[in-house]
Structure formats: C-alpha cells, structure tokens
Amino acid sequence: MKAMAMAKYSINDFKGVIPALVTAFDLDGRFNEELMRGLTTSLLHRGVDGFYLTGSTGEGFMMSAEERMRVVEIVCEVVAGRVPVMVHVGAISTYQTVSLAEHAEAAGADAISSVPPIYWPFSPAQVANYYTDVTASTSLPMVVYKIALAGEIGFELLTRLAAVPGIEGVKYTAPTHFEIARIKREIGPDFRVFSGADEMAMSGLAFGADGLIGSFYNIIPELYAKLVEAMDAGNLTEAKVLQERANAIIFFTLKQYPMSAVKRIMAWQGADAGYCRKPFDNYETREQEAALKAAYRAFRDENNLGEIGFLTDL
C-alpha cells in the first residue's frame, strides 16, 4: 500500500444518506475487485453522502483481515476524497481490531467504527478497555456500533464510552429511538448519532440523529435523500409517505434472500455487486433471478410503486 493518506473529513461531515456498502463476491466466494470499483462508482454518481465499509451488510465477518483491508483500499482509491468514508474494524481481539484500524487510517479513511467484542460475555470494563485501546491506536474518530447481534451496549456503558477521548459517536441500530434524544440531551449535542434501522429512518431523524447508515441505501438512496430533505424542511407528511414506500420495499425484500436480493437489484441498476458468501443463499441461476425480478414486478404493481428507483425499469 502507498504511504499513509490523511483523512479529509471530520466526524461532523458524516451526514445524510450513507450506504453500509455491500462487498462484491463471485459465486464461488472470491472477492471481485472490479465489481467493487464499479458499484462504488455507481453509488457516487447517484449522490450518496458517504460510505460505511465492511460492516454487517458488507459481510465483514465473512472475510479475512487481508480481504477487509483490500476492500478499504479499493473504496478509498475510487472515492478519492469526494465523500467521507467510515470503516468498520470490529473483531473479537483488540490486536486484530487495532491492525484493521491502523490500516484504515493509512488507506485514507475518515473514521472508524466497531461492534463490541463478540462471542464471549465480556464485562462492561473489558468492552470499555477494548474501545479505549482501539481508539487510541489512530487519530481517527471512533463510532461505537450498537446492534443487538453483537451484544448490548446500554445507555450507561455508552455514556462511559463517550467520555473516552476519540469516541465521537454511535451507529444506533435499535428500535428504542427515544434514547437518541436522551443521548443528545445527556451525553451532548456534539456526540454524533447515526440511525442504523432503515425502516425507522424518519423516527431516527425526528429524535435527533445526524445521519443514516444502512443496507437499503445501496438500492434506493434517492428515496432516502428525499426523506432527509423532507425532514430538514419539517415536512412530516411527505417524510411519512417516503418512509412507508421504503418500508414496503424493505419488508418485501426481507421475505426473499435479502442480502442476495440487494446485490441482484444493484446489478439490475447497472452496478453488479456479485453474490453473497455462504452460508448465505444466492440467486445462482438465470431462472432464479428471473423469478425474483418477476416477484418484484408483481409487488410493484400491487403497491403502485412504479415511480421508485429500480422498480420503474423492471
């Protein structure tokens, strides 16, 4: 890798619609660098406000450390400073997470993020030590990732973490949005909150979230950009309509092989994102993909969603 690149953005520059970027794999599970470049370029052209790399949607825990690093290098190279980039560096061991964090900084990322260490029932003190050590390893701001899949970070622990120098925000993927307002009130208005539940983006913004990070911004970022606009303008009626349309797409997709469906939808939009790694399921044959497309057409027509993004051109 080239010499260390300097971050171009501060944590306050992360706002708006930030896809939790998918990672492109071939059907045999190999990382596809060419597709990764293409899908990153496509989303840049569609006006996204930043990227969140190698998280849950990016199948980060399905990759080796070296593969995760390569994803970061490619995306940072393609982005070339046009939008801010946040890299999820979470791993079980502090040692590996520090290595990923140091690499992210060297590659030109603008922030790092991490779930708490998983699998073993680490104590709050051990979790706090983990975040303290990782955050101290770079000059980049750290965004704590609160998601039940990785272990609970309660309000008391989050308050403790927020006092650690360098921890400057939280990716809040939970339905308890009343707590977002409490974070802004008790931890402070400068502590950044990123709403991570796509189906509750309106709620997250209403309670004070500074931006949106999520999976479905890979396929319908324009819809969410309009939602952010409506919320900024105080147009709750319009925002509610947009959220309901997004939710119809989300809930229908969740009935499919969701991760694979998102990647196939990206391909239909001209940005092939490949396939998912096993044990995720895939639409492997032309017949399976054709059936998926037909299902979305029927869904579109039944719900009068013909004017939305990828549904228009099916």
Rank of each mutant, 00 (worst) to 15 (best):
M1W: 10
S10Y: 05
K15S: 15
P19E: 07
A24E: 04
D26F: 02
E33L: 07
L43R: 02
G47E: 04
Y52Q: 13
G55A: 11
G55V: 01
M62L: 07
M62N: 10
E66G: 00
E67P: 05
M69F: 02
V72T: 15
I74V: 15
C76F: 05
C76A: 15
C76V: 04
V78K: 12
R82G: 10
V83A: 01
P84H: 09
M86H: 06
V87R: 00
V87K: 02
T94E: 12
Y95H: 15
A101P: 02
A104C: 06
A109Q: 03
S113T: 06
S114F: 02
Y119V: 15
W120R: 14
A125S: 14
N129Q: 13
Y130R: 00
T138P: 05
V144H: 07
Y145C: 10
Y145W: 03
L149C: 10
A150H: 11
G151R: 04
E152T: 14
E156N: 08
L158E: 13
V164A: 05
Y172K: 05
F178L: 00
I180W: 00
R182M: 13
R185Y: 15
I187A: 03
I187N: 07
G188V: 14
P189M: 12
R192C: 06
V193Q: 11
D198F: 03
L205F: 14
F207D: 12
G208K: 03
G208E: 07
A209R: 03
A209P: 02
I213W: 01
S215D: 13
F216H: 09
F216Y: 15
Y217H: 10
P221D: 09
L227F: 11
L227Q: 11
V228W: 10
E229G: 10
A230L: 07
A233W: 05
A233V: 04
Q243R: 09
N247K: 00
Q256C: 09
K263P: 08
I265Q: 06
A267H: 08
A267E: 14
F280Q: 09
D281Y: 08
Y296L: 07
F299G: 04
R300G: 02
E302W: 02
L314I: 11
